[in-house]
């Protein structure tokens, strides 16, 4: 297990070096992977963000806030909940579960068929030509999809406000009072790095798959679990750092 983490760190390092060192043959593969992952993810993400935004922070928090007669604070709550945590998480979970698994399955199948070995013998560096484009594509896509998840998450919150027969004015007022640019860029940076974690874990698991078709299935399973763990651990560290370095965002403004 520790050895695997070490190997993934190593892969991250080699991917970064390989990404910046010329030549850059991975352009078309990057575009292809980006579009491929986008096609796979946009709909599941749409459904899960609205559902999540509506149900978890929306309905549940609304029920809770109604107790205090404070439903007008739902907007403020949404900044904390949605921008900082829910949207990035839903985003990462959908990307790891849908795009990440597809990457692991694809690379794993190629590994099993010895295509990756054949590429290497034919002078094609699998890191530069396969890992780097997936790494960059997933980072960009996860970052962009964060904003997308945010929008639909907030839409879920609006839906919850409306369902509770509350006016939308205070929702937006407290939302924008509390929203700071730090929140937004923090959220986007965080998810971009989530994308990096997903890409590395899923590529690594795919490229080291062994033991036939069964082995590919195993690799996909492990990739999802490790990616989730990695995201949780990283998120904890990131949130702690962000709160410590930007104390202003901890105050909740009425």
């Amino acid at each position: 297990m520790l050895e695997e983490v070490g190997n993934m760190m190593l892969l991250t390092g080699r991917t970064l070096v390989s990404a910046v060192r010329p030549p850059y043959p991975y352009g078309s593969e990057f575009v292809g992977q980006f579009l491929f992952a986008m096609r796979l993810c946009w709909f599941p993400l749409l459904v899960s963000t609205i559902a999540f935004g509506y149900e978890a922070p929306g309905l549940q928090a609304a029920n809770f806030l109604v107790l205090f007669g404070a439903l007008d604070r739902l907007g403020g709550f949404f900044v904390l909940a949605s921008i900082r945590e829910f949207a990035p998480f839903v985003d990462a979970i959908v990307l790891a579960g849908v795009a990440g698994t597809a990457i692991t399955a694809d690379l794993g199948a190629r590994k099993i068929r010895e295509e990756l070995d054949a590429l290497e013998v034919l002078g094609v560096d699998p890191i530069k030509n396969l890992v780097v484009p997936r790494f960059l594509a997933l980072m960009l896509l996860t970052g962009l999809f964060d904003i997308y998840a945010l929008i639909f998450g907030v839409f879920g919150g609006i839906l919850a406000t409306v369902v509770n027969h509350a006016p939308l004015g205070p929702f937006f007022a407290t939302f924008f009072n509390n929203a700071e640019t730090t929140d937004l860029w923090g959220s986007v940076v965080k998810t971009t790095l989530f994308g990096a974690i997903i890409a590395i874990v899923c590529c690594y698991k795919g490229m080291t798959a062994s033991g036939g078709a069964e082995g590919v299935g195993r690799a996909v399973n492990q990739a999802v679990v490790i990616a989730f763990l990695g995201i949780f651990a990283f998120n904890y560290a990131f949130t702690q750092t962000l709160l410590a370095t930007h104390p202003d965002i901890t105050t909740i403004i009425k």
Binding site: A109, R110, R113, E114, E115, D117, A118, L119, V121
Partner: peptide
């Protein structure tokens, strides 16, 4: 080197 892999290893 030219290498024929045991299972062909064609690019799918």
């Amino acid at each position: 080197f030219g290498l024929l892999f045991q299972d062909g290893a064609l690019f799918g």
